[in-house]
Amino acid sequence: MDKVAINLTVNGRNRQALVPPRMLLSDFIRHELELPGTHVGCEHGVCGSCNVLVDGKAVRSCLMFAVQTDGARIGTIEGMGADGSLHPIQEAFWEEHGLQCGFCTPGMLVAATELLAEKPDPSEEEIREAISGNLCRCTGYEFIIKAIRSAAQKLREGNGAAQTESA
């Protein structure tokens, strides 16, 4: 089938591409844009490891076609943090052992980003709800919850302060 031209913004950078309609957004991001930080676990919406931000909202990139993102603003894990330094949420995951193998981590970070943008001081219940669509086979989730609570505090205290603290 004919390829379709799309024009979108990925991690703040304008990208143009010709894509076959059946190409999943997850495959477009990983293989065409060569941003392999977005992971693919199940390809049917269940595991959450492929979560990316589309126009600021967390969505499953395995359940969207790349062709649908014409004009959209996409954020992937590679867009977090700046110049090789960790984003405060990443920093909190590091400090609190919010990851082991790291497979689920990009999706967890996207879920946490959306949560903390909407609720700067989430309750434990709200954190559990926010990551309920993300499967982790390693951590048992408790450290992830702790990490998100710590990230919330860092972000409330101001990114700058949080970054210097750990430097």
């Binding site: 959450g48 909202k57 967390a58 499953r60 959306e114 709800e129 669509g133």
Partner: peptide, 9 residues
């Protein structure tokens, strides 16, 4: 019903 990323779409 589902999870927030699924409910977003």
């Amino acid at each position: 019903i589902a999870h927030s990323a699924v409910r977003n779409r």
